[in-house]
C-alpha cells in the first residue's frame, strides 16, 4: 500500500499560482489512487517549465530534449513493455518542436499516457506565442499579435482516431486526476490536454477566463461516437468542454510484436543459434 507521500514532495521552481502545481497534484493523486509502484512508472519529458514536472515526482525519469519526449517514450516501451510510461511536457514541446512525433505517436498507438500542460504560451523562454495561442495573441516576439491559426490538438487527435483523447483543466484537480487514471488504464496512446493558466506570461487565458468557459461533458456523452467527438472537439471560445472526448479500442503498437509478451528486453538473451542459421543463409 502506497501513501500519497510516497510519490514525492519537492520544492518546485514554478511561479506561485502556476497551473503546473495543480497538474502535479492531480498526477500524484492518480498514481496514488491507482496504487502504481513508483519504481514501475517512467516519466519522460522534454524541455520547458512543464517538462520539469517529473523531477517533482518519485518515479523513474528521463528528462530529454525539447520536443523529443515521445520518441524516447516509444523506445522505453519497446524495451520494457511492463513499464507504465507517462509523458509530461508543454504545448510548445508537443505541438511545436515535437509536432511530427505527436502525429507519429498517435498513428503508432504506443501504450503511453501523454499529459500536455497547455498554457498557450512559452513560459521558460518568457512569453512567446505557442502553437495553441489564440490568433492575435500579443507577445514581445509577436508585437502585432500572432498571425498563426490556433492548433487544436484535441480535434487533430480525434481526426486521427487516437485511442483516447481527453481535456482537463488545472483548476479542477479531482476531475483531472480521474482523466489521468483513465488514460493510464487505457491500452494504447492516451492524450490528455490540460488547460493551464500561466500567471506570468499569459494575461488572456487566466483562471477567470477558463472558469467562465469550461464545462464537464455530461454523463450521457458517448466518447465512442467519433462524429460527435469531432463536433465537441471543435468547440472553443465561449464554452470549452472537459472530459473524455473520444476513445476507441484500436490494438496498441506493442500488441503487434510477439517478443513483447516475453517481458523486458534486458531479461532476454540474444538468440545466437538463430543468428547462426541466418548467417548460413548468406553462403
Amino acid at each position: 500500500m502506497y501513501e500519497l507521500g510516497d510519490y514525492g514532495d519537492y520544492i518546485t521552481a514554478w511561479c506561485p499560482g502556476c497551473g503546473n502545481h495543480n497538474i502535479l497534484k492531480a498526477v500524484k493523486d492518480a498514481l496514488f489512487k491507482l496504487q502504481l509502484p513508483p519504481h514501475r512508472a517512467l516519466f519522460v519529458s522534454g524541455i520547458g517549465q512543464a517538462a520539469k514536472a517529473p523531477h517533482y515526482i518519485n518515479a523513474n525519469v528521463f528528462n530529454g530534449l525539447h520536443g523529443r519526449s515521445l520518441p524516447v517514450a516509444t523506445g522505453a516501451r519497446i524495451s520494457n513493455p511492463e513499464l507504465t510510461v507517462i509523458v509530461e511536457s508543454g504545448d510548445g514541446c508537443h505541438y511545436g518542436e515535437g509536432g511530427n512525433h505527436f502525429l507519429a505517436a498517435i498513428r503508432r498507438n504506443v501504450d503511453i499516457t501523454i499529459i500536455v500542460h497547455d498554457n498557450q504560451v512559452y513560459g521558460l523562454t518568457k512569453g512567446q506565442a505557442s502553437p495553441t495561442s489564440s490568433e492575435g495573441f500579443i507577445t514581445k516576439t509577436q508585437p502585432q499579435g500572432t498571425h498563426n491559426a490556433r492548433f487544436n490538438p484535441v480535434q487533430v487527435a480525434v481526426a486521427m482516431k487516437a485511442g483516447f483523447v481527453a481535456r482537463g483543466f488545472s483548476g479542477r484537480v479531482e476531475h483531472l486526476s480521474g482523466l489521468i487514471q483513465q488514460g493510464i488504464k487505457h491500452r494504447g496512446l492516451a492524450l490528455i490536454d490540460v488547460l493551464q493558466p500561466c500567471v506570468s506570461f499569459n494575461k488572456v487565458n487566466t483562471y477567470g477566463w477558463y472558469n467562465q468557459r469550461c464545462y464537464i461533458l455530461s454523463e450521457g456523452y458517448d466518447p465512442t461516437d467519433r462524429n460527435q467527438a469531432m463536433l465537441v472537439s471543435e468547440e472553443w471560445g465561449d464554452r470549452i468542454p472537459l472530459g473524455v472526448i473520444y476513445k476507441n479500442d484500436r490494438p496498441a503498437f506493442e500488441d503487434h510484436f510477439p517478443v513483447m509478451k516475453l517481458g523486458p528486453a534486458a531479461m532476454r538473451p540474444a538468440r545466437l543459434d538463430t543468428l547462426k542459421e541466418i548467417m548460413e543463409s548468406f553462403s
Binding site: L65, V72, G75, A265
Partner: peptide
C-alpha cells in the same frame, strides 16, 4: 531521424 535516435536512446535507457 531525430525520432530515430531519440527512440534508440529511450530503448537503450530501458535495457535494449
Amino acid at each position: 531521424e531525430i525520432s530515430a535516435i531519440n527512440m534508440a536512446i529511450g530503448a537503450s535507457f530501458c535495457g535494449s
